[in-house]
Design a binder for these strands. Structure first.
Lengths: 164, 164
DNA sequence: CGTATACTTGACAAAAAAGTCATATTAACA
DNA sequence: TGTTAATATGACTTTTTTGTCAAGTATACG
């Protein structure tokens, strides 16, 4: 069970966009500097998200990337599905390289059921988490209000779980 | 988010041992045949589990592999921790190759908290699932009873989730 | 226009994971 | 005690994933 590099770094880059004031573009170079990643790599990750409509890009001098939807309306599940290789429930076992007979046709294959159960379980966690919540509740609220008050910069809130 | 090959195939091999009648050794060759995997690969996977005490090996002519504990007393979580590279909560971000400043010291790193929350969430699912339950409830019961009745062969039961 | 800045693209290089092989060791059994 | 069947091990090859590069295209601005 593993979080892939593409998911980890892709999410980091996306959060940089999520943190930017509404409507403001952020350049690849800027994100690279903030996250300590090479611009070429950041570019690659952003491109994946751009192609799937998660972010929007603007070329040319003053160009950059920007989120297509506000962070409160994007779930982690969506991001991970775009960046990663999370198997959809229906794909479980279809790319198994072993004995398909033993896997698909016999009823004593205990694997499919756990993997699909686990996958659903994880998806439900991810789908219930929005990017805004990752930036802290304060930020999420600030975002909602920003359209009215003009206060744009959320600093930090309570994390989901005090990890170390 | 990905289930690694080692986890997938390692678990399959382990389940073959779990299905074997109590006290009976199963050879690598036999497992390979049943799962459609090469003996060399099965060997490698079993070795990992052997070194960490999940299974026991017996060399020589009538040798083979056998579980160290009954399937009802082994959790999926334990198996996955042995086979895979699930990050422990404390490791989250320590192997991040980017800007550690941005990750560790700033409070606006929303990553650590989600990853550790997600990791805990997954672990709790895995820790609550025993190998016996993967073989179907009937089997789990049969196992418990086998010491008294001598009925050793559980066939199949209801999967956790009708995946496909 | 021309130039500087930024995204776009596909090919490539490096690293990690997956899977194989040859060889050594152990134990049963005739 | 020699043969056979099995595990043990580490080096090796292949495949996949990560990450880089160089050349191209679009846009702002002087």
């Amino acid at each position: 069970m593993k979080i892939t590099a593409q998911e980890e770094y892709g999410l980091r880059c996306l959060l940089q966009l999520a943190r930017a004031p509404q409507g403001e573009l952020v350049s690849v170079k800027e994100i690279g500097t903030r996250e300590g990643l090479s611009p070429a790599y950041v570019e690659k990750l952003l491109r994946v998200m751009s192609r799937s409509g998660l972010v929007h890009s603007v070329r040319g001098v003053k160009g950059g990337y920007i989120m297509n939807r506000p962070p409160a309306q994007v779930s982690l599940g969506e991001v991970i599905r775009v960046l990663g290789t999370m198997p959809s429930t229906s794909q479980i076992c279809t790319d198994f390289t072993g004995n398909q007979q033993a896997c698909v046709h016999f009823s004593d294959c205990g694997i499919r059921s756990v993997w699909s159960g686990l996958t659903n379980y994880i998806q439900s966690f991810l789908d219930q988490t929005t990017l805004a919540s990752l930036l802290g509740q304060e930020y999420a609220v600030a975002e909602q209000l920003s359209k009215r008050t003009g206060n744009k910069n959320g600093t930090n809130g309570t994390p989901l779980n005090g990890g170390g």
